[in-house]
Nucleic acid binder design. Structure first.
Length: 352
DNA sequence: AAACAGGTGCTAA
DNA sequence: TTAGCACCTGTT
């Protein structure tokens, strides 16, 4: 039985982990689950605790895409393109190990082999990225980056589902990570399909397109409701083919994405980085803009456009990793401020 | 309770 | 091209 981290005696999420299958996956390089899943690139991971399970000392519950076996010959048009979504618990014994343990629930309707789950994990966690080399190369750029990389050891850029990533980042504009997570979760509860372990898949574009603006607004989309609805509509109608974008050059993918409502330079670059794995892009939000201003522009405030140029110029094909390290460090520094969240320190209010 | 955080779309310089 | 503003939800 597992509990949400920090909630004593909270409601059990996974009632009986003993009976679910597990597979150990070797990524061939370090993965720090906490940094990777809580840095803000993905929105659906929840920390969970399994007392007495050393292989799950650090564990997260989330929903990952599982692609169908390529060699099964299923040519049913849409089936092939659409990946399934599966709830999993991913755990490790200590930060930044090379291997993780994946626990998943068997679905009798559509059983999965442990090999398929392993392949999904290798893909989702970008096992092909040689993070040791990436960290070494970026460390050599300058002293500030060296220290930043050191703090970010084991942070990996994920390979997320393009539609979920696009939709999530449309919601991210002028919004906080906590809000985005809440909204994504409500959308899944409202429009998604059961994915095991009590959680739902991120809703297919057809599902969101078939919904109404009022339910999107109620889910917490805010003024972005019409952006999301419109984007879902265009994806569902095939006016933009997110699978086909996989094979286009980065600039063209960016151009296509930015035709969608609610998708500007930042959101397009995030989708390029976190779904299409274009490691040469450098998404610029306020945090990264501040970091570039402070460290690479002599303290002078830079525009997002020039910060983006500077990032790509300095870090080239690894700009995406450099950006994540800078972002992770900036936010870690922020939450360490005295005004940051101090949950163990109850607020004392006057006049009660 | 009012101030603030956070990208994009739109309009006006 | 770019500066300035509105947009919604939640936290401090």
């Amino acid at each position: 039985v597992c509990y949400p981290e920090g909630m004593d005696g909270g409601e059990a999420i996974v009632s009986d982990l003993v009976t679910v299958p597990t597979v150990e996956v070797d990524l061939g390089g370090p993965l720090d689950l906490e940094k990777t899943l809580e840095c803000g690139q993905a929105f659906r991971w929840k920390r969970v605790a399994f007392p007495g399970r050393p292989e799950l000392t650090i564990a997260y519950l989330g929903v990952v895409p599982v692609r169908p076996e390529p060699d099964l010959g299923l040519v049913q048009s849409d089936r092939v393109r659409q990946s399934r979504q599966l709830s999993v618990v991913v755990g490790q014994t200590a930060p930044a190990t090379d291997t993780v343990t994946i626990a998943y629930e068997l679905d009798s309707d559509a059983p999965l082999s442990s090999l398929e789950v392993e392949r999904a994990a290798l893909r989702y966690f970008s096992a092909e990225d040689d993070v040791i080399s990436i960290e070494r190369e970026l460390s050599s750029k300058d002293e500030m980056m060296r220290a930043t990389v050191e703090r970010s050891h084991g942070l990996r850029i994920l390979r997320q589902d393009p539609w979920e990533c696009l939709a999530s980042y449309i919601l991210s504009s002028n919004n906080s990570i906590a809000n985005i997570s809440r909204t994504v979760e409500r959308l899944a509860d409202c429009f998604g399909e059961p994915a095991g372990m009590g959680r739902n898949s991120f809703p297919a574009p057809e599902k969101l397109a078939g919904g109404d603006l009022v339910s999107l607004r109620r889910s917490g989309c805010g003024f972005r409701d019409r952006y999301l609805w419109d984007a879902a509509q265009r994806v569902a109608r095939g006016q933009i083919d997110l699978c086909a974008l996989q094979n286009l050059p980065t600039d063209e993918v960016r151009e296509e994405l930015m035709r969608l409502p609610g998708v500007g330079p930042k959101v397009a670059d995030c989708v390029l980085l976190f779904a299409y794995h274009r490691l040469e892009v450098f998404p610029v939000d306020v945090w990264v803009a501040r970091a570039v201003s402070r460290h690479y522009s002599g303290g002078r405030t830079v525009t997002p456009a020039s910060a983006r140029e500077e990032g790509r110029r300095r870090f080239g094909r690894l700009a995406g990793y450099a950006q994540e390290y800078l972002f992770y460090q900036a936010r870690a520094a922020k939450s360490a401020q005295p005004s940051g969240p101090l949950e163990s320190c109850p607020m004392v209010s006057r006049g009660e």
